[in-house]
Design a protein around this nucleic acid. Structure first.
Lengths: 237, 237
DNA sequence: ATGACCGTTATGTCCTACAAATGTAAATAT
DNA sequence: ATATTTACATTTGTAGGACATAACGGTCAT
């Protein structure tokens, strides 16, 4: 028995037109603000129906590559690199493995940006971080409120001044919230490593001292505690 | 003169329908393989034209959230987290700043995954890395061929066994290639820091020794050399 | 029971039509 | 002649019809 069906032609016209329009933009070196032909001219030139062109443009619009000004025409935009993430990074749509991978990715990045943070951080940043910590409230004696977690770490991200870093990590944060809420009896620490649990306030002196290695180690332990716990308890409520 | 136009209704029907379908999936707890209503029934229930539904579905299809089996129906899929990246991370579409941000993100992640790599790496992995290095060829006496760069680092990524890490970094790699080719007279090292330039072969002993801090420091310097050079020379060919 | 046939259904594609809004050119008023 | 108004053409957003094609399921004949 032989399978001669070499290629299942799953690519639709829309897929092709989408690529053609992208090629058009690249080849004509169109940049921010340049106009692209109207839907009708595109349809005529590409020999397809206007619907097909609209579907392709709809996708490009979602990616932020083009923008449509109603009743005027469409122009090229600079895509928002991480924007497409928002729709996909949804705990209800992702598998448990994907979520775990993303949470581990977060640990790696937050450790990896230690140099970036400590070479950029100002005294004002540190003051703001302290202010955020002072507003921290706890659900019970162990579990910090999710909003506080998000506020603190978001501030850390913004210190990098790297928009890709900021967007990517802020996209992953809600995932952490979801897991945090969903896991039953979530306690990132148990008795035996209670003493070495790193809290937000423990990071401040390291930031003040501009201690890169110390900070990286601390933030790693701070996050890894959660990550490890989640991996151990596989059952989600 | 007052602006009473409270909200510019930029959201189209397609945007709304897209959200509605997503909500439908989430609320009905549809998962991998579950069918969603046909285009026509969706259009009727949502009181919109079939075109609108098709555009919305076309977007979800691109994100990998749904899959259409021709003439049969549409089913829910698990979206590929990083897939949407491929279309957006295109050096011709992104601004120079976005590219630089992404390259810095790469440096941070490759440093940040040091723990992950060194806790996972096997002797076979190291042997394979050595084998890759043995096949390295140089364009001139300084510049390693881009394919070799990609091959070596891709192998490093795969050691993490974290699909999000692998996909994200492999998405950024071609960007590096582009910059590498585009920058005129690209030399990551100059005379004064020639001695401290870290090459691929310098990483091997650190990997063998499972020296996390040493490896992280080395890979950081290895990548930062390029990154810094690019930031200095602002003009692209 | 097996195989041939037919109708139903779903997606992919094309087409026409119209509303709304925008820019432009012509027409009109001053 | 200039300014204002009007009318038209263009473009996106949306609706709806039409058809080809392919998969599925049921019926009927053998």
């Amino acid at each position: 028995m032989k399978f001669n069906k070499v290629a299942v032609k799953a690519v639709t016209l829309v897929d092709q037109v989408e690529e053609q329009i992208l090629s058009y933009i690249v080849e004509n070196k169109l940049t921010l603000g340049n106009e692209i032909p109207s839907e009708l001219t595109l349809a005529e030139n590409l020999n397809v129906g206007r619907n097909v062109v609209r579907e392709a443009l709809s996708r490009l619009r979602m990616l932020g590559i083009v923008e449509s000004r109603k009743h005027k025409g469409m122009v090229v935009r600079e895509p928002d690199v991480m924007k497409c993430f928002t729709k996909v990074v949804n705990p209800y749509l992702l598998s448990k493995q994907s979520i775990l991978d993303l949470l581990d990715l977060r640990v790696s990045i937050e450790s990896g940006i230690a140099e970036l943070i400590l070479s950029n951080i100002t005294d004002e940043d540190i003051t703001e971080l302290e202010s955020i910590i002072s507003r921290h409230t706890y659900q019970d004696d162990m579990k910090l409120k999710v909003e506080n977690e998000i506020e603190f770490h978001s501030k850390l991200y913004r210190i990098t001044k790297n928009q890709a870093v900021i967007d990517l990590l802020e996209m992953i944060l809600p995932l952490f919230s979801y897991v945090n809420e969903k896991y039953e009896d979530f306690k990132p620490l148990n008795q035996k490593n209670k003493e070495k649990l790193v809290k937000h306030e423990d990071l401040i002196p390291l930031l003040k001292a501009r201690d890169v290695d110390g900070y990286r180690n601390a933030i790693y332990n701070h996050l890894k505690a959660y990550s490890e716990y989640i991996k151990q308890t596989r059952n989600i409520k």
